[in-house]
């Protein structure tokens, strides 16, 4: 992969069905999704979020991820100059594959949340032998 100069991605504010009822702003985390034969990997950028403040739910083939920011870390800080805003992160995906609920794993490193969603056995493509 060539290394180009990195541009800033303006944070996208959450605007979708199922809007939040609280006034605070939510942001949509930048996400990569890739698929292997046996699993789907979802990689999300949630800078500043603690491990304990991440919530991942899977229901009705919808994957909900909510990552909350601990604003108390900013106690006593008076902004002087800003280029970005902060807020909780929230995103929902409709999954087209059957996922094994029991086998979802999550890891959080350097503000990057990696979810590995194992497909249920029947959804794994099988190679059919031709006799």
């Amino acid at each position: 992969m060539t290394e180009q100069a990195l541009q800033v991605q303006e944070k996208k504010e959450l605007a979708q069905k199922g809007e939040k009822t609280v006034p605070a702003r939510y942001y949509v985390p930048a996400t990569d999704i890739y698929e292997a034969d046996d699993a789907l990997t979802v990689v999300m950028e949630v800078p500043g979020v603690d491990r304990k403040d991440v919530e991942v739910r899977l229901e009705n083939d919808e994957l909900h991820v909510e990552a909350r920011l601990d604003v108390s870390k900013y106690d006593g800080m008076e902004p002087l100059y800003t280029e970005y805003n902060i807020g909780h992160f929230s995103r929902t995906f409709s999954l087209s594959q059957k996922i094994d609920q029991q086998q979802i794993t999550a890891a959080l490193d350097d503000g990057v949340l990696t979810l590995t969603l194992k497909k249920v056995q029947e959804a794994v493509p099988r190679r059919i032998e031709i006799k």
């Binding site: 100069a5 902004p79 970005y84």
Partner: peptide, 8 residues
């Protein structure tokens, strides 16, 4: 430019 900065 990246990274966006906030100054407090």
């Amino acid at each position: 430019a990246f990274p966006p900065l906030n100054v407090f």
